[in-house]
Design a protein around this nucleic acid. Structure first.
Lengths: 112, 112
DNA sequence: TTAATATTAAACCTATTGGTTAAACGAATC
DNA sequence: GATTCGTTTAACCAATAGGTTTAATATTAA
């Protein structure tokens, strides 16, 4: 029987959040430090409203902390939920390392 | 500027595939060895047709190899695309593992 | 040859996603 | 007090997702 994990909902939200390129790019932006909504939206070729929606998705996944600062909403990355996703993937790591040793090594070394 | 990765499409497909609990459960089933579509569908509380659609999503993400065996389609897990997802997450690992290390890492890479 | 089996495809439905534009709203500035 | 600024909300739209039921297909068994 297939087992249901207790934090399945988190994983749904986190993996789904990671499934859109703009949201991954936003996380990359935030890895360099907090940014306002406007700063986050700037490099993307969609409206501010669209980015605002993406931020909501990231917030619901627990990946985003928002610090209210007057009329500015300053967004901080909360990487903790990523560790759950990482943990899930880790259980499969041996499966691709066995068969694709070279690739796995490559990915590891690439990460300086 | 936010950079577009060359395998972004793969990452979209892989993370999106992982975003549904039934699809993650199917991958867990396959981690124990190949199974037919019917065997995969059995423990899930949706129709066979629904599972068939989930399998298509996994196949499109490159996570599934199908071996035709008469009228049976035997599904094998191909974990390789998971390593890409793992690789993406790995770049954020320091952010949840150790905030001081994260800061140091950031400062180091800032110069180049 | 007929019937059962394994699976997909088609048609359909509802809800969600990802985008838009325009309006709203609170905070800051003039 | 009026206006600008940063951001969200509302209303809308087309496309996709995730499910169903029923029909179709191909293979195996009777």
């Amino acid at each position: 029987m297939v087992e249901q994990q207790p934090d399945d909902l988190d994983l749904d939200a986190v993996f789904t959040a990671l499934g859109h390129p703009i949201r991954r790019e936003i996380l990359e932006q935030l890895a360099d430090g907090p940014e306002s909504v406007g700063e986050l939206a700037d490099p993307h070729d969609v409206t501010l409203a669209a980015v605002s929606k993406h931020l909501r998705v990231l917030e619901d996944a627990g990946l985003l902390d928002v610090e209210e600062d007057g009329r500015v909403r300053r967004c901080h990355l909360d990487a903790a939920p990523l560790s759950e996703a990482f943990g899930w993937l880790t259980r499969y790591r041996v499966l691709w390392e066995d068969r694709f040793d070279a690739l796995a090594d490559h990915l590891e070394n690439e990460d300086q």
